[in-house]
Design a binder for these strands. Structure first.
Length: 757
DNA sequence: GGACAAGTATTTTTT
DNA sequence: ATACTTGTCC
């Protein structure tokens, strides 16, 4: 297997593991995705697995795309590498996000789904929110007392935990409301022939659970399951993986608990622990060699992450040299911080020809980008802002998509409500509310209500009188006429033509092109969207529209935003995950920013902030700058700020100029603070809070770590797979060749460590 | 039904 | 500071 030669022995071991459950725990920069990709190639080439039988799930479309590309081409720029698979083989694979994969399954099985046909639409967060509002209205609940977003969060959480509306049990007044809205919300989704993002997973699980025949069929189909970023799965996703993998799983999961930064979206890194429990016979492989960062950077990052409990302490190492020390820089405020960053990038460029494009500036919150952008603009330096307003979130794009979705699926009342009066047609909120209520009474979708109104206007007798004044009724009838006309054209003309037709006949084109600069920009955006429709022009009109909509619903960004290296990248720490840069600046290493103020009251949240910091630090290959300020303007009001606690965890000898000087640290303590860390400047110059007011964190370290070989008096030799510090003990899991994985107390069990590298 | 003023909330966001 | 939602008045 010559194509495996470019992997190191450990990576190769993972790739060639037997086809049972395999868990690869891998540190940053250890080649996780590479291992996953090669595993796919290995299954096909060495194990004669038909590509058809392989499903690889990722979390982003980007990751899926990159994986395909690597499999299909010599990849990574160095062109002399052999291809891993042929085009035909790659085409046979199922590589995609959880959501895209589930959407495909549901589309295929839509006849088994109550109230859905295969034209169902996928609602994103905006649509979901609109639907929650509608549900709240229909239940006559007070929108002010119960924030729709809070309800939606709760519903989403339920779905991530596979709790359907019937199974939900309320334990508080708020949850009572949630329970009622949830039920109504699901009904509305069904009436609209729609699923939301979370449904894609939950409904697929429900379907496979209730239909044994389908379950068996999909298990047969997807005999080999691979999961990337496994620490980011939620319960529903893990359940789905388990279902498809079946009782004799060929399941290959790659994870790094220390990079789990999406718990607020339902991700639960404890799925890694569950995996170990659910598949006790699994093969565990640790990838601990980092190929990215200098020893200094890696060491600093390890010191930061080590403070977290509940983790397998991986013993990361690198063969790279120490490299430059980390620069910890204190600036007066965020403007000075930005200046320093720009100055330093220019200096690096001038002194050693370090291209500006290989630098990245990272921050905790999007709002922090402003000071940076202002400085870059003032200095005339180009920069790449990674994910500003996303393309598909622009109003004009969402409006155009709403038209398209409505034409595809007229029962989609959320899209209908969005554009019924855009451009203005004299159908205001009141009229729309009346229409919706009327539709609700008749038990039909909003579009059907419009049809009934039209039938009535032709003189047909209907049981209920429409509640509309002449003016409103005329406006509604004109809209109905427009919509019916567009629907009739749907299966007649090619998609780009349909797109044009919609914009012209709806009056949207003239509405947008009002002669202003912004108007032109919006029009340009619409034309960019039109460009996407041309990719579907060759398909049958009836197929093109649903295919286009699915693509658009599941792809959050448009390619080509982060390609060129025309300047430094500006991005949030979250957005930085999975990327690497020779030089990284993390700005705002201040208490209340990183860790964020909203995280400081819970241990779990604080640990996630720590992981976030770790993710940022480990993006750096050669140079790492950590900046904090003395004073920071937040929400319009300035205040003194305190250096982030994470800075204290970095050993001084790794920091430029810190090893010898205690003075610097003493200076830090001079910064006045109150309990919240942000102090009123005037008061604070008199108040000095001793350093002890900062809560000390546990510095206890585990005696055992994953990978250690131990001998147990009874079980014999085994390998430690996990270690957690508990309140007063250390709990470890040890895999014994004969007896399986045992959970032991490190202080009580008769254990002896055999070796430690 | 639409324009404007006041009020409110403001982390992160793979799909 | 500011963007976005809601309330009031024409």
């Amino acid at each position: 297997m010559d194509f495996l030669e470019e992997l190191n022995p450990k990576q190769r071991e993972a790739v060639q593991a037997e086809c049972g459950p395999v868990l690869v725990l891998a540190g940053p920069g250890s080649g996780k995705t590479r291992v996953l990709t090669y595993r796919v190639a290995y299954l096909v080439r060495a194990r004669d697995v038909a590509p058809w039988h392989i499903v690889a799930v990722t979390f982003t479309n980007k990751a899926a795309r990159e994986m395909r590309e690597r499999l299909a081409s010599s990849g990574d720029g160095d062109s002399r590498r052999p291809r891993l698979l042929s085009d035909r083989q790659v085409e046979g694979l199922t590589v995609g996000t959880f959501h895209a994969t589930c959407a495909r399954i549901l589309r295929r099985e839509s006849n088994s789904l109550p109230g859905r046909d295969n034209n169902f639409v996928i609602y994103d967060t905006n649509d979901q929110l609109a639907l929650v509002r509608q549900a709240v209205r229909e239940l006559n609940l007070d929108e002010k007392k119960t924030k729709p977003s809070a309800i939606l969060n709760a519903i989403s959480k339920c779905k991530n935990d596979l709790i359907g509306p019937d199974a939900f049990r309320a334990n508080s007044y708020f949850e009572e409301i949630v329970a009622r809205v949830y039920l109504k919300y699901q009904q509305l989704l069904q009436t609209n022939n729609a699923f939301d993002f979370d449904d894609l997973i939950m409904v697929t699980v429900e379907l496979l659970r209730s239909r044994r025949d389908l379950l068996i069929a999909y298990q047969q189909r997807f005999r080999h399951v691979l999961v990337d970023e496994f620490q980011d799965t939620n319960l529903a996703q893990y359940e789905l993986v388990k279902l498809i993998a079946g009782s004799e799983p060929s399941l290959f999961a790659v994870a790094d608990e220390d990079q789990s930064i999406y718990s607020w979206r339902g991700a639960d890194y404890r799925n890694v622990l569950r995996f170990r429990k659910d598949y006790p016979q699994h093969c565990l492989i640790l990838l601990e060699q980092n190929y990215r960062s200098t020893a200094t950077i890696l060491e600093a990052a390890k010191h930061v992450i080590r403070r977290n409990a509940d983790r397998v302490d991986k013993d990361l190492f690198t063969r790279r040299g120490a490299g430059a020390r980390i620069r910890v820089v204190e600036m007066y405020d965020e403007r000075a911080e930005a200046q320093f960053v720009v100055d330093e990038i220019i200096r690096l460029q001038a002194s050693d020809g370090h291209p500006a494009g290989s630098c990245a500036v990272m921050y905790r919150t999007n709002a922090q980008s402003r000071a940076l952008e202002e400085e870059f603009i003032a200095r005339g330096m180009p920069y790449r802002l990674v994910r500003g307003t996303r393309f598909y979130e622009r109003k004009e794009i969402r409006d155009a998509l709403a038209y398209l979705r409505l034409v595809n699926n007229p029962h989609d009342s959320v899209s209908l409500a969005r554009i019924i009066n855009v451009p203005p047609r004299g159908i205001g909120a009141q009229t729309l509310a009346d229409l919706e209520r009327w539709a609700f009474k008749l038990g039909v979708s909003t579009y059907d209500a419009l049809l009934k109104l039209e039938a009535k206007s032709r003189g047909e007798r209907l049981p209920l009188p429409g509640p509309f004044s002449g003016r409103a009724r005329n406006a509604l009838l004109r809209f109905e006429e427009l919509l019916t006309h567009l629907i009739a054209e749907r299966s007649r003309v090619a998609l780009p033509e349909l797109f044009d037709l919609i914009l012209v006949t709806s009056g949207y084109r003239d509405y947008v092109r009002d002669g202003s600069v912004e108007g032109q920009e919006r029009w340009d955006n619409l034309m960019e969207l039109r460009g996407v429709t041309t990719e579907f022009a060759a398909l049958e009109p009836a197929e093109a529209l649903p295919a286009f909509l699915e693509r658009v619903a599941l792809v959050a960004d448009v390619d080509g935003l982060n390609d060129s290296d025309s300047g430094p990248a500006l991005l949030t720490l979250h957005a930085a995950k999975g990327l690497e840069f020779p030089t990284v600046f993390i700005v705002g290493m201040d208490e209340d920013i990183l860790p964020h103020i909203r995280s400081t009251d819970s241990r779990e949240a604080l640990e996630e902030e720590r992981r976030l910091c770790y993710v940022g630090m480990t993006r750096a290959k050669d140079r790492l700058y950590l900046l904090h300020t003395r004073q920071r303007t937040a929400l319009g009001q300035g205040g003194a700020s305190v250096p982030s606690r994470f800075l204290k965890d970095i050993p001084p000898e790794l920091i430029e100029g810190r090893a010898t000087s205690r003075r610097q640290r003493a200076d830090d303590r001079e910064i006045p603070r109150n309990q919240t860390g942000r102090a009123d400047v005037r008061v604070s110059w008199q108040t000095r809070i001793p350093a002890t007011s900062v809560k000390p964190e546990s510095v206890r370290t585990a005696a055992f770590k994953a990978g250690d070989t131990v001998v147990h008096a009874k079980f014999g030799e085994g390998i430690v797979v996990a270690s957690h510090l508990t309140a007063d003990d250390e709990e470890i899991e040890v895999a014994f060749p004969k007896q399986g994985v045992k959970r032991l107390s490190a202080t009580i069990a008769p254990l002896q460590r055999v070796n430690r590298p």
